[in-house]
Amino acid sequence: MEVVLRGVHKVYKTGPRPNKVLDGVDLVVPSGQFVAVTGPSGAGKSSLLYLLGCLDYPDFGEIHLGNRDVAKDGESLREKIRLRHIGFVFQDFRLIPALTVLENITLPMQLAGLSGAESRQRARELLRLIGMERERDQMSGVLSGGQKQKVAIARALANLPELLLADEPTGNLDTASTREILEVLQSINKSRTLTTIMVTHDPQAAQFAERTIELDRGRLREKGHESAR
């Protein structure tokens, strides 16, 4: 899925002074590209990702996912877009602790109306992909951080999205797990036509992407293609 941002502005007005976080962001990400977004803390990287993920509205500007300007869509439609077209991975994993590993992965599929058998079948494939078939029936709360993040990635991929958004997916992980997660993300990006946008403040992590852009003072700056391949 191609992602196009045009003149996106975002101002937080809740503080004592209005906080202008995004000040006319323009960006084109071709379908299937793996992009890393870096920048100093508080630059607005998460804010950008929430806008892309249809979790928040810009103050103005256009956000095209595929051919749709989702900035103009209502919440009910955006719920469907989130469910079927976007996968979101968080720094703090955000699995549902009351559910098992398998159930966490099948949850979005069942929300999308897949049958139990179908969704379990697909979940097993995803578990194989992340190498966690053995932990299938464990409660998600007992997993290690790296394992949780892998499950979270599998959950994000459940409905075969065209856009994967990851907000510092390795921020809470040690070096070994970080490497593992990034490799998973990279291989998924390569094996599917999956546009991937990953926020990270770790330059090493950014190496895994095909392209790195930097967010600074509300604007995006191209850091060129520093592909690790």
Binding site: L55, S76, E79, K80, L83, R84, F88, R94, A112, R155
Partner: peptide
């Protein structure tokens, strides 16, 4: 609340 927000983020509707 955090959990419900997660559910919403992965696509659960308000109705669900």
């Amino acid at each position: 609340l955090g959990e419900y927000a997660t559910l919403r983020a992965v696509g659960a509707s308000r109705r669900v």
